[in-house]
Write a protein that binds this DNA or RNA. Structure first.
Length: 437
RNA sequence: GGAGAGAUGGCUGAGUGGUCGAAAGCGCUCCCCUGCUAAGGGAGUAAGGGUGAUUAAGCCCUUCGAGGGUUCGAAUCCCUCUCUCUCCGCCA
């Protein structure tokens, strides 16, 4: 949620900032509601004051043993106030609910150093890392590699559930598991994150907290059994909500958490996009970094977090580029986002494999996540950040496509070999099924 | 799934209709005392919001899990829901 006070005091600044995203704020509606709110609230609070004072007096009158007529006159007067109060309260509540609902649909303010632009074509490429591979043969995409190697089955998945799922078997399943462990270990051991295991179902409040609701319900899978349980679309939701309703002391911050979870997305509205293969699935594995920090450090933390995601790509020797998203392409709750895009030879293009964002106070307001500088100080909002490091399914694709040879073998980057029993190439039997005699 | 108990400030925990935004203790902050250490004394210490010159003072409103009800008045009485704990059952 953006700062309500800022809306009240400097509406033009908010409007022009949000225009950079292509979001147009209904100023006429808002101004009118807000002005009414102010008048109504003053009136309401005054009526409540009168009632409180009147009620107190009843107690005094009674204890002083005043005449019954005095008392009934006073009670009549109070009844009138109450009647007025009830009407005012009803109107005020309706108004406030409308305003609250409105606030939840307003995106975050964009950082000043985010470039202008309305869509991904105007994202700014900051740099490229790694050299693109050249092949003296026709490259296969990951689907073709999967077919050749075996162990990647879309047809079986579709029989089990439907489209946009995959079954991985044998060394491909093991490769995915190796990647997860590899990423977690690096973040814990080299980058100083605390590993957390979290629920894969979350309630409405958590999704409102991180900003997926109320606006993006269609992208979520809802559990039929419960009124407000959803499958997580990213570990960001349960992990960031660890900060919900908390007041951190200075020395507890920053919190740096890493979690591996599956992610479930309905991908409504992406029909026809990336239909083939593992690029866009209803279920995929991801290792997510989440940071809760003091405001003065959040700029720095975004750079660090992004560097931590890059470190994984670098260790896996995958070529990538780093993009600074333009205002129009930056997500609803984010003030500034870097995307890491990995090179996919099968697509002859870079594709998103990580997205690292600074949410500043936006999620903290929704979650009531605060911190206190010193014991005497007022609580302030924390800043929250998160980034994928990395999307595991796409990492697996990237490895298959970038490290294939003509015969269809995949070379394993040095850094990953300890996680695969030391082998240098796939396919090789990593762990043989027991022979039953 | 069955039975019971509970939800109060940073924490523990009192509080069954007005004098309660809330005792006491712990923690924390400041001050005093004590030549180290240990200990002692005093004061302060919830959050959100409105108004105010929108980071003043002041005044005011709201909040004792959430929502509704009774009442002139609710932390306190009634109803619904959520969550937590204990015991039994079931279970990876």
């Amino acid at each position: 949620m953006i700062d309500v006070k800022l809306l009240r005091t400097d509406l033009p600044a908010v409007v022009s900032n949000l225009e950079r995203r292509g979001f147009s704020l209904d100023t006429e509606w808002y101004t009118q509601q807000e002005n009414t709110r102010k008048v109504l609230q003053i009136k309401l609070e005054d009526l409540r004051r009168q009632r409180n004072e009147g009620s107190k007096k009843v107690g005094q009158i009674k204890s002083q043993g005043a005449s019954p007529t005095d008392l009934s006159i006073h009670l009549d007067h109070l009844a009138q106030i109450d009647q007025n109060l009830e009407i005012t309260q009803k109107t005020f509540r309706t108004l406030e609910e409308a305003l609250d609902a409105f606030y939840l649909t307003v995106p975050n303010l964009i950082d000043a150093d985010v470039p202008d632009g309305m869509d991904s074509s105007q994202n700014r490429e900051l740099r490229r890392v790694g050299t693109l591979p050249h092949y003296p043969f026709t490259v296969r995409d990951h689907v073709a590699i999967g077919e050749k190697l075996g162990g990647m089955s879309f047809s079986e998945a579709s029989r089990i559930v439907g489209t946009r799922f995959v079954v991985l078997k044998g060394f491909l399943a093991q490769l995915q598991r190796a990647l997860i462990n590899f990423m977690l270990d690096i973040h814990v051991q080299e980058h100083g994150y605390e590993e957390v295991y979290v629920p894969h179902l979350v309630n409405r409040d958590s999704l409102i907290g991180t900003g997926q609701l109320p606006k993006f319900e269609s992208e979520l899978f809802k559990i039929a059994k419960s009124a407000d349980w959803y499958l997580i679309p990213t570990a960001e939701v349960p992990v960031t909500n660890l900060a919900r309703d908390r007041i951190f002391s200075r020395d507890e911050l920053p919190c740096q958490w890493v979690a591996h979870t599956p992610c479930y997305r309905s991908e409504a509205g992406s029909y026809g996009k990336d239909l083939k293969g593992m690029i866009r699935q209803h279920q995929f594995e991801k290792v997510e970094l989440v940071c809760v920090t003091t405001p003065d450090r959040s700029n720095d933390m975004l750079e660090r977090l992004t560097a931590h995601a890059e470190a994984i790509l670098a260790k896996l020797e995958l070529p990538y580029r780093i993009m600074l998203l333009c205002a129009g392409d930056t997500g609803f709750g984010s003030a500034k986002t870097y995307d890491l895009e990995v090179w996919l030879p099968g697509q002859n293009d870079y594709r998103e494999i990580s997205s690292c964002s600074n949410f500043r106070e936006f999620q903290a307001r929704r979650m009531h996540a605060r911190w206190r500088k010193g014991p005497k100080d007022k609580p302030e909002w924390v800043h929250t950040l998160n980034g994928s490091a990395l999307a595991v399914g796409r990492t697996l694709i990237a490895l298959l496509e970038n490290r294939q040879d003509e015969g269809g073998k995949i070379s394993i980057p040095e850094a990953l070999r300890p996680y695969l029993g030391g082998i240098s190439h796939l396919p090789e039997e990593l762990i043989r099924p027991n022979q039953v005699i």
